[in-house]
């Protein structure tokens, strides 16, 4: 199921616009968080230096990977990783229980966790003919 797909330059929609559009296309009334909402919350937490809140928006496996890679608690480890600021949201696609959110400065992968969405991977750069290379990767 495609929620929103927009060209990065052609549309350059705002986060608010994307949220409104995704709600329209999915028929969501706001009862269930969308991947765009989760991504926006994650970016806002990172941008505000609230790494604890950002960790709460990661999948459990992503938290485990972040902590095991650094030997520190998730908020401290996330602060050290230096995930680039995402900036404006360019496109959101959700297929089944997985989603990709492209921002001007980053790409996030999300997964459905019950009734909400959580960030599986962040700080992702495309690799030609291969999977994205991600700073945070949850399995």
């Amino acid at each position: 199921m495609v929620i929103v797909r927009g060209g990065r330059r052609a549309l350059a929609p705002t986060v608010a616009g994307l949220l409104a559009t995704s709600a329209l296309l999915t028929g969501c009334s706001g009862a269930m968080a969308s991947p765009a909402t989760a991504a926006a919350d994650f970016e806002a937490a990172l941008g505000g230096g609230d790494y604890g809140a950002a960790c709460d928006l990661l999948t459990p496996e992503a938290v485990t990977q972040v902590e095991s890679g650094s030997g520190q608690a998730c908020p401290d480890a996330l602060a050290m990783l230096g995930i680039p600021p995402g900036g404006e949201m360019a496109s959101v696609q959700a297929w089944g229980r997985a989603a990709i959110v492209e921002l001007d400065g980053d790409t996030l992968f999300l997964a459905r966790t019950g009734e909400s969405w959580a960030v599986r991977a962040a700080g992702c750069s495309p690799v030609p003919d291969g999977p994205y290379d991600c700073t945070v990767e949850g399995g």
Binding site: M1, W95, A98, F109, A121
Partner: peptide, 15 residues
């Protein structure tokens, strides 16, 4: 198409 894209995203690849 939808199932393939879901798997692509699980594998960190573009749909």
């Amino acid at each position: 198409h939808a199932a393939y894209n879901e798997q692509q995203l699980i594998d960190y690849q573009d749909p």
